[in-house]
Amino acid sequence: MNKVKLWTKDFLIVSIANFFLYFTFYLLMVALTTFATEKFLATPSEAGLASGIFVIGTLIARLFSGKSID
């Protein structure tokens, strides 16, 4: 019986690409709140609301982009 390898070259490339994609997403969330508080003089709760709206928007976008990719 042949064993299927998990750690192939393609798997590693996709994993690294996904890591950098999500790493950029999380850095953008942190930068968004800092930018809102410094440039727009928003309160921390308003900056958190902006970050929350960003997260909800990306979740909704994932629903539509997944259907369009298929």
Rank of each mutant, 00 (worst) to 15 (best):
N18Q: 02
W7C: 11
T24E: 01
I56V: 02
F11G: 06
L59Y: 05
K67Q: 00
A17Y: 06
R62Y: 01
D10Q: 12
L6S: 05
I16D: 10
G66F: 07
G48L: 12
L28A: 12
K9Y: 03
R62W: 09
R62N: 03
G57C: 12
T37N: 08
L6Y: 07
F20V: 15
E38G: 11
D10A: 14
T43P: 02
V55G: 05
F20A: 07
L12Y: 15
F25I: 14
T33V: 13
A47T: 10
E46A: 12
L12K: 03
F40V: 08
L21S: 09
F11V: 03
S45G: 05
W7V: 15
A31Q: 08
G52S: 11
P44W: 10
D10V: 14
S45W: 11
E38W: 15
F19W: 13
A31E: 13
M1I: 03
A31P: 03
T33Q: 03
T8S: 11
N2I: 10
A42M: 10
T34G: 13
N2L: 10
F11L: 11
V4I: 15
L49M: 10
L49H: 12
K39P: 06
I13Q: 01
L12A: 07
K67N: 06
L21R: 12
Y22S: 11
F23S: 07
S51Q: 04
D10W: 15
V4E: 12
A36R: 02
V55L: 13
L41A: 04
L49T: 05
F11H: 10
M1G: 14
G48S: 12
K5M: 13
L21T: 11
T8Q: 05
E38N: 09
L49V: 10
G48N: 02
G52F: 11
F19M: 06
I60G: 04
G52L: 05
L63D: 07
T8L: 04
T24N: 02
P44Q: 10
E46Y: 10
D70T: 09
F25H: 08
S51L: 14
A31F: 15
F11T: 05
K39A: 14
T43N: 01
F23I: 14
A47E: 07
K5V: 15
F35S: 11
L12R: 04
K3I: 13
L59K: 01
A17I: 02
S68C: 04
T8V: 09
F64E: 04
D70F: 03
K5A: 06
I60L: 04
K67W: 09
T34Q: 06
S65Q: 00
L28D: 05
F40R: 01
A36M: 00
P44S: 08
V14N: 02
A36E: 06
L28W: 00
V55K: 01
S45P: 04
T43R: 00
K3V: 04
S51N: 02
L49K: 01
L32V: 07
L41I: 08
I53M: 01
I69Q: 01
L63M: 09
N18R: 03
K5E: 12
S45I: 10
A42K: 05
W7F: 14
L12N: 07
T58A: 15
M1P: 10
V30H: 05
K39N: 14
L27R: 00
E46I: 13
T43H: 06
N2H: 02
M29I: 14
Y26R: 13
S65E: 02
F54Y: 11
I69T: 06
V55P: 12
T58F: 14
F40E: 14
V4N: 11
